[in-house]
Design a protein around this nucleic acid. Structure first.
Length: 484
RNA sequence: GGCGACAUAGCCAAGUGGUAAGGCCGUGGAUUGCAAAUCCAUUAUCCCCCAGUUCGAAUCUGGGUGUCGCCUCCA
């Protein structure tokens, strides 16, 4: 089995091969920290984190870097609004980012470089571009000359002529930068300082970096001249990633990344979820209403490249689905003692029919939705076995087999980032009502049932239910119960 | 106008040449005093439309239609 991935650069699925054996260098374009993250950001962070997890599970050593853009007009605007500094705004939303991602169960990248911490690398890169003739200064700004880079447009499949035709009348007449540019699609590498804004010294005067250059500098600094995988939201393909390529490859003469992967957008009522349209829901708002794992399931049940429609109904459905998966994941914690096995081991099996089917699905361009089908099959079966155990007291399936299935389920769920707290099954300990008390009430109810005093029996049943005790009437007048 | 992606049941969604995974919702039966829970069974003769290639296509080719993204900051 080999992993194949859809490479935006070639617009086709390719067999995945690393530069260095068993080692993956991966970079993800992160966020500009001027506000709370919304569901769209969550999709990007979550999907690529799961990709990273999967690669690790496959045996790769993965180096995963994600940046924070902490120099930007939007951050400055926010700082003005709030009467604070750019740093204060950045720090606030970086902290919020980490909180949100922790709630969602998104793992940490190996490093989170920031633009403000990468100034030396950025300036060095701009200088090199200038020396090589790809950049030109203009009144304190420095621009990249896209016409000097023959391959410009190779990632997004655009030609400069097409861009020009399409953008007619739309590109920046009122943009003050436009007049400084030699060509409309040149972009800023460095911007001259404006009154009262943060600025750094440079050979071109005091100023700050443009947006695209930071990623080129960070990749080079942290991962090297060529990396294996560069990922990000599909809306960054052009111009951001196109410009990154132009910047990096003009300097190094080598490919910036062998694979470019892009995730699809979150759609709300037919339109992309975005700040500008105002049709977004922040991760915080979302998690007030839905469980983190339900959100995860909602995201992972659609192939990462496809657009994903956000509706409350879809999240509610995902919540139900998660309940099913969760019950399967709890199986061992619930019945393990009874069946004679304990906590799941950390040993990775990497074998077995179920694992193979999962791997086959996911190896095809990270088809997590296909992989989830395997998890649900296992979960459903374990739930059934668990119910038989509750109702009958025993099951025909060998406990070894059940232990193995559960182990597999835990392992596969772990790759996708699904986890349960075993304590969830023990919430009863705080219930207050003792087993003996329950038994007495059950007795009382059965007496009432015998006497056909159903009003009383139903009252007792409701009373127990209110305390989280579910009664199961079995044939023959036998009643068993469990704490839910 | 240019570039690209997608179109599968009530809803979500896999499946890239061999006769439609999985989830949610629902339905029928068993069981029950009634419920709940559970068990069993069941839910697309067909994959946007038309034409073609093939013994055979949801899957390949051509032509339509529709939806979305990018072309401007954007995950």
């Amino acid at each position: 089995m080999t992993l194949s991935v859809y490479n935006t650069l070639t617009r086709s699925k390719e067999t995945f091969q690393t530069l260095e054996k068993n080692k993956v260098r991966m970079y993800c374009c992160g966020i500009t920290v001027y506000d709370y993250c919304h569901l769209g950001h969550a999709r990007t962070c979550l999907v690529w984190d799961v990709v990273r997890r999967y690669l690790k599970w496959c045996g790769y050593e993965v180096q995963y870097i994600q940046n924070f853009t902490d120099i930007d007009d939007k951050i400055l605007n926010r700082a003005r609004q709030e009467g604070t500094s750019m740093e204060a705004v950045s720090e606030k939303f970086i902290a919020a980012y980490f909180e949100d991602m922790e709630h969602l169960g998104v793992g940490k990248a190996d490093a989170y470089p920031r633009a403000t911490h990468t100034l030396d690398g950025i300036k060095r890169l701009v200088s090199e571009l200038e020396q090589k003739g790809f950049a030109y200064p203009a009144e304190g700004d420095v621009y990249y000359s896209v016409q000097k880079f023959p391959e410009y447009g190779k990632l997004s499949g655009r030609k400069l002529e097409d861009l020009q035709a399409g953008a007619s009348g739309r590109v920046g007449v009122e943009d003050p930068e436009a007049s400084k540019k030699q060509y409309p699609f040149d972009f800023a590498l460095w911007k001259a300082a404006k009154e009262g804004e943060p600025a750094w010294e440079s050979p071109w005067g005091n100023g700050r970096p443009g947006w695209h250059i930071e990623c080129s500098a960070m990749v080079r600094e942290r991962l090297g001249e060529t990396i294996d995988i560069h990922v990000g939201g599909g809306d960054l393909t052009f111009p951001h990633h196109e410009n990154e390529i132009a910047q990096s490859e003009a300097v190094t003469g080598k490919p910036l990344s062998n694979y470019w992967l892009h995730n699809g957008m979150i759609i709300v009522e037919g339109k992309k979820m975005s700040k500008s349209l105002g049709n977004f829901i922040t991760i915080r708002e979302l998690l007030d209403k839905f469980e983190p794992m339900a959100v995860r399931l909602f995201i992972l049940q659609t192939q990462y490249r496809k657009p994903l429609d956000f509706t409350e109904e879809a999240l509610a459905t995902a919540t139900n689905s998660w309940e099913t998966l969760k019950e399967g994941l709890l199986f061992g914690y619930q019945y393990g003692k009874q069946l004679g096995f304990s906590i799941p081991s950390n040993a990775s099996s990497q074998s077995g029919e179920l694992i193979t089917r999962f791997k086959e699905a996911v190896d095809d361009d990270f088809n997590f939705a296909g992989g989830l089908a395997v998890l649900f099959e296992i979960a459903k079966n374990l739930i059934r076995e668990g119910n038989i155990l509750v109702h009958e007291g025993k099951t025909k399936t060998a406990s070894q087999e059940l232990a193995a299935q559960w182990q597999t389920l835990i392992e596969l769920a772990g790759i996708l980032g699904f986890a349960v707290q075993p304590e969830e099954t023990n919430s009863n300990s705080t219930g207050g009502i003792s087993d003996a008390q329950i038994e007495a009430l059950v007795q009382q109810r059965n007496e009432a049932r015998k006497n056909k005093n159903y009003a009383e029996s139903d009252r007792l049943r409701d009373e127990l239910q209110a305390q989280g005790i579910t009664l199961i009437d079995k044939p023959g007048g036998v009643t068993i119960w469990n704490r839910s």
